[in-house]
Design a protein around this nucleic acid. Structure first.
Length: 501
RNA sequence: UCCCCGAUAGCUCAAUGGUAGAGCGGCCGGCUGUUAACCGGUAGGUUGUAGGUUCGAGUCCUACUCGGGGAGCCA
């Protein structure tokens, strides 16, 4: 009997095939058993009817625990009502392993429990869908640069103390000497572009910042292209083209997953060239101006109204839930609705508490300061496409960024803000190619020149204008999938104080 | 580092300071088309830890531990 994957079932309608997978869900009804099988490519309901043909395994199937592994043979039937659109009428079952007491059930679980069971958690549909999109995203990242003449340069993960300066890094004992886990491959990739013209590095990167938010991981993946003979405009052009390419590829290859995740695909389809381009000065004007104020005032009013509404709904549903004579499914529905409402209420509570501060921060925004998280959200929400913000004050940026020739207080850098408040997913710049200016900036930042000798060589031997950017894979994926929390975007998230499993 | 919230059965949650409960999951039984199936039965607890207040603490107070969210910092 041919072994096929569930994703290929449409080619085998009417035929007898074998599936090999795991039991995702089981229901039985006396003389019928419904086995929903998962094989990594999809889900398929397999029906075992009591009869002479199924006698050998019927009773065993009835007791089979969730996530038991098995091979199922049967005739394929198209059935649009079923998950995946097909159903198998079972003629044979081979049980490989009986699983008992699988911890993750079809009822709601808390996030702490799910994260402790992450090694099992990503067997479930939603997590599976997210990680399928991740695989496409990663493939397109590599594909985009490979197609466009970039050479992959792998940069070291053990890095000497000299990084970008201020950030907190993880320290490792390296034969008795302290080294650090790399927080960027950027300086190395600059060396690469002088050898290969256009290069990129792609790998994990590490930050020891004590950030406990839905946007932070301590270990995350970043791709960093670097281009010789490029100015800021060239860098922005590549970033724009690259983002469009990623979005189109994911829409094309993962429409079903995005739909399952409830992502508004039409919203993603609006990601087209050209993106908005504003300078940091223009951003400051927007933040301090009436439009930002109006947006936040409107936000506060609607959120307050919704908070009252949600609070009232919770009260009503709690009363209903305590009432008598409810069917179980009615109670389940209420419990699920209550959980959602309580979560929404928590979010609204924090928003209502934070918005007045955001109003303050925006109104008093320092034109010579960095954009805060709330400022980025305001800017991105006032635009219908991704926004490039350029020319930040040099004091809040890294030493290697190219000083602007018209305004020496600014640098030729760019941050790209994703739509819908997903924040900064790209940060890049043209690099300082003048040795004297670079040395001056290095000293200004209080960095040790000796640590950077090799890097300074790049400006001594054939220095050219060049630049590049870094894109955070997990934040990008959270945006593409419309997720609230970055921890779902990576198979085994590493967060402050968490490294199991 | 700072601020807010939380911890009760394997899981999700209840319990005006007064006898710790329900649903799911497990186990046993019933049902030929179920979709988080349904119906009946059954086992399952040192209420995060340590103190304190009280006749009496899951509930109030203090500290700690762990978790969630946010600020700062960042992709």
């Amino acid at each position: 009997m041919p072994v096929v994957t569930i994703s290929q079932l449409s080619k085998h309608v009417g035929q007898e095939v074998t599936l090999q997978g795991w039991l995702y869900h089981r229901r039985d009804s006396g003389k019928l058993i419904f086995l929903v099988i998962r094989d990594g490519s999809g889900l398929c309901q397999c029906v075992v009817a009591k009869g002479p043909e199924t006698d050998a395994f019927f009773e065993e199937c009835k007791r089979l625990g969730q996530e038991s592994s098995l091979r199922v043979t049967g005739a394929v039937r198209a059935d649009p009502k079923q998950v995946g659109g097909h159903e198998l009428t079972v003629s044979g079952v081979e049980i490989i392993h009986k699983s008992e007491n699988y911890p993750i059930t079809n009822k709601p679980h808390g996030i702490d429990f799910l994260m402790k069971n992450r090694h099992l958690h990503f067997r479930s549909r939603r997590q599976w869908a997210i990680l399928k999109v991740r695989a496409t995203l990663v493939d397109e990242i590599r594909g985009y640069f490979n197609r466009n003449g970039y050479t992959l340069i792998d940069t070291p993960i053990f890095a000497p103390a000299a990084g970008e300066g201020s950030q907190t890094l993880f320290s490792v004992d390296y034969f008795g000497e302290p080294v650090y886990l790399a927080q960027t491959g950027q300086l190395y990739v600059e060396a690469g572009c002088m050898a290969f013209g256009k290069v990129y590095c792609f790998g994990p990167t590490f930050r020891a910042e004590k950030s406990k938010t839905r946007r932070h991981l301590t270990e995350f993946w970043m791709v960093e292209p670097e281009i010789a003979y490029a100015d800021l405009n060239d860098v922005i052009g590549v970033a724009e083209d690259f983002i469009c390419s990623i979005v189109q590829r994911v829409i094309r290859d993962n429409r079903a997953e995005l739909e399952f995740l409830g992502r508004d695909i039409a919203r993603l389809e609006t990601v087209q060239k050209p993106f908005h381009r504003i300078t940091h000065k223009q951003a400051a004007e927007i933040l301090r101006g009436p439009k930002a104020r109006e947006l936040l005032d409107r936000d506060l009013t609607t959120k307050k109204a919704r908070l009252d509404e949600v609070t009232k709904l919770i009260g009503e549903k709690e009363t209903q839930e305590k009432g008598q004579g409810l069917k179980e499914w009615q109670r389940d529905k209420l419990v699920a609705e209550l959980a959602d409402l309580r979560e929404e209420k928590d979010d609204l509570d924090t928003d209502v508490r934070n918005i007045p501060q955001h109003i303050e921060l925006a109104a008093n925004f320092d034109p010579d300061g960095d954009l805060g998280g709330s400022d980025e959200t305001i800017i991105s929400r006032l635009h219908d496409r991704p926004v490039f913000v350029t020319h930040y004050p040099k004091d809040c940026k890294a030493f290697y960024m190219k000083q602007n020739k018209d305004d020496s207080s600014r640098v030729n850098n760019v941050d790209m803000l994703a739509p819908d408040g997903y924040g900064e997913i790209i940060g890049g710049s043209q690099r300082e190619d003048n040795l004297d200016v670079l040395l001056h900036r290095l000293h200004e930042e209080g960095l040790n020149e000796a640590d950077y000798e090799w890097y300074l060589d790049l400006r001594r031997y054939g220095s050219v204008p060049h630049g590049g950017f870094g894109l955070g894979v997990e934040r990008t994926l959270a945006w593409l999938c419309g997720l609230k929390h970055i921890r779902e975007t990576i198979p085994f998230p590493r967060m402050m104080g968490k490294f199991y499993p």
